[in-house]
Amino acid sequence: MAYSDKLVDHFENPRNMGVLDKDSDEVGTGLVGAPACGDVMKLQLQINDQGIIEDAKFKTFGCGSAIASSSLVTEMVKGKTVEYAENLENGAIAEELSLPPVKIHCSVLAEDAIKAALADYRRKQAARNAPTA
């Protein structure tokens, strides 16, 4: 039951807005857009040697729902493993949960951004590891 309250709080007070150093090898950057409404979202993950996501930041130009989704997603992946982020699920839900609806593209934008950020991180890691291998 507390879950929905927590969620609503997220929408009211978005967290993790900002940018990380996009040139760092530890940072994966995902930039995605929603053609339906012209929203753009940049989401960055800072990942350490153990594959733990140490920090997550986002910058979204779009509607409130898109900003809120970004906030929720970054908060969920912080401190988690890369594997967790790849298989992102937002947990078991209490019964009878009812919340306002969300635009479809807003609900997927953050997820797509996470996937894109992880792909960018992998590419960087592969490039760094290539010469020593």
Partner: peptide, 17 residues
């Protein structure tokens, strides 16, 4: 469509950002 996932080329998206 809401499910339109056609992403423009990354350079354009970067420019918009």
């Amino acid at each position: 469509g809401e499910r339109d996932k056609n992403q423009p080329d990354p350079a354009f998206l970067e420019q918009v950002f």
